[in-house]
């Protein structure tokens, strides 16, 4: 049963690469946005909050189509990016972009809650001890938001790993380039005799999800011990 074909390995490898890249690239933005939403009042805050959460409530196909319009070869951003050599359309990088957009609200939310729950008095204390606002953020706010960082990263990663609708709409289902585990399973269910292979990939998905869950649980516990432990 676990004799995976080269095509299946390719899909697994691609899925992991896309999810890791999508999560890693959106993390800095996610931290910045979560912090802004938790701490700052500015014009258009409600709008920013809404736009970020749109992928959560829109049909994924719609998000994928909007990405196609914007980042396709003829898209208003895509055509401009193509001139400097960055292409998303029908590439694995496009799949990563779609996953990043779709997982962004899930990444931001726990982080924002973590930032909101930090005792701001601790930040004031750091400030009086000579830490500039940036240093306060790096030495106090961000370390104290680590539980939210872990939860957000896991949720974002899981969403990126399983993303299907937006990805297939934006970059299609090209084996070896944009065919992730989900897309491969979808293809396998469309052909006769695909059941065994689909079953193998389903098992792989479950294993990857479990590993990610256990890892984040372990990291959270370690972070918790750092705050309250010996």
């Amino acid at each position: 049963m676990f004799d995976l074909s080269p095509e299946e390995w390719t899909a697994i490898h691609l899925s992991l690469r896309i999810a890791v890249v999508a999560t890693a690239c959106s993390l800095p933005f996610g931290i910045a946005v979560a912090w802004l939403l938790a701490r700052k009042n500015f014009w258009g805050k409600g709008l920013l909050d809404g736009v970020i959460h749109l992928p959560l409530v829109l049909p994924p196909v719609v998000t994928g189509y909007l990405l196609l319009i914007a980042f396709g070869r003829k898209g208003f951003i895509g055509s401009w990016l193509a001139e400097i050599g960055i292409v998303f359309a029908f590439r694995w990088t496009g799949a990563a972009l779609a996953c990043a957009v779709m997982s962004f609200p899930l990444l931001v939310r726990p982080l924002r809650l973590s930032f909101e729950s930090i005792d701001r008095k601790l930040e004031d204390a750091a400030w009086t001890l000579g830490a500039s606002p940036l240093k306060v953020f790096l030495t106090v706010s961000l370390p104290l938001a680590v539980p939210g960082l872990i939860a957000g990263t896991l949720l974002g990663f899981a969403k990126a790993l399983g993303e299907f609708g937006a990805t297939i709409t934006f970059v299609s289902n090209i084996p070896g380039e944009t065919q992730t585990i989900s897309a491969a399973i979808y293809t396998l269910t469309q052909i006769p005799d695909g059941d065994a292979a689909a079953g193998r990939l389903v098992l792989v998905s479950i294993v990857i999800a479990l590993i990610a869950l256990v890892a984040s649980e372990w990291l959270s516990r370690r972070a918790g011990q750092r705050f309250h432990g010996e």
């Binding site: 005792d119 601790l122 204390a125 400030w127 606002p133 705050f227």
Partner: peptide
């Protein structure tokens, strides 16, 4: 002058030690 450049030590009512 911003607080971090005032060089004024502050002991708060509740200690406010960094828990991490």
């Amino acid at each position: 002058v911003p607080a971090h450049k005032r060089r004024i030590g502050y002991v708060f009512q509740e200690g406010r030690l960094f828990p991490h």
